[in-house]
Design a protein around this nucleic acid. Structure first.
Lengths: 157, 157
DNA sequence: TTTTGTGCAAAAGTTTTGCAGATAT
DNA sequence: ATATCTGCAAAACTTTTGCACAAAA
């Protein structure tokens, strides 16, 4: 991994600034915490991330917009947002943390080891496995933390 | 994670030196590669690891036996062994690489987020999920790379 | 004004790499 | 003899932490 392109980030990667983060802001305030420009930027980046992003990616995309933003701020904010429940993280193919904004329903990720693309796996699809593990072992799977690696249809040829 | 105990490693963690690694040695030779004391030690450590170990753990356990062994040697050997197919790695709760010697049949891991214990998930148990993904999406899951996080029966109370 | 957040810089932890010398074949 | 391995040291990379100053409430 020597290729860490500080490339220009496509505008599409940053959510439209008009997005209302009122709920998050209120949740922060309810805990005596602050609503800052940096936190809004980080949320914009997360919201624009289709599926998931690594910590490094969030840092890069934030810095592409505002070079003043530092890694420490990003990581600390990701922690806060996860505590608030607006964010989950799992571990992708490279073993790096992958964050995603909490969607309507929790889902797992399917990740192709060859092309790197990823898809969501809904609770329905995973139901049989989850139910089986719950029934046989009493194990409750944390679906949002589940990353399934393999080879996708296209790459299998 | 400031606690990296260089603690004495229980003898139980190292496989009996009598173990025959003839197959691995032959596979190495078949590729023009060398059979070295360091590689044998690393295999002993891996074989004694119940289920999985992180790269750091392999390093520590090797050094507990022979302090001369260096991280670079361990990581390079792990790569070689994985290329040969004697080893697989996945990513555990902390996102760190977890290696395990390739068992008779490939299996996934179930890992409790509270107590940290882990169990094997057999292909049978995961079959429904795997078959579903293969049928509906043409996605072939890499079972040995699958680490399922959640809460175990004991911790759920 | 008081507490929380930020940027900076430095550290921590894991894994990788370059290289000269050692070793397996 | 010769290509592969090893140990050492240093680097790469991601993530964390301490601290003084800035900013939010």
């Amino acid at each position: 991994m020597t290729d860490t392109p500080t490339a220009t980030i496509s505008p599409a990667l940053i959510a439209e600034p008009g997005h209302s983060w009122a709920t998050v802001r209120d949740a922060l305030h309810a805990r005596g915490q602050r609503w800052t420009p940096q936190r809004r930027l980080i949320l914009d980046v997360l919201a624009a991330a289709t599926g998931h992003v690594t910590g490094t990616e969030v840092v890069e995309r934030c810095r592409a917009v505002d070079p003043e933003v530092t890694p420490s701020t990003v990581y600390r904010t990701l922690d806060v947002l996860e505590e608030l429940g607006y964010l989950h993280h799992s571990h992708g193919a490279g073993g790096r943390e992958e964050f995603h904004v909490l969607p309507a329903r929790e889902h797992a990720h399917l990740q192709c080891e060859r092309c790197g693309r990823s898809w969501e796996v809904t609770p329905d699809e995973a139901a049989r496995l989850l139910d089986g593990l719950a029934r046989d072992r009493g194990f409750r799977v944390h679906l949002g933390h589940l990353s399934i690696a393999g080879v996708c249809a296209d790459c299998a040829g």
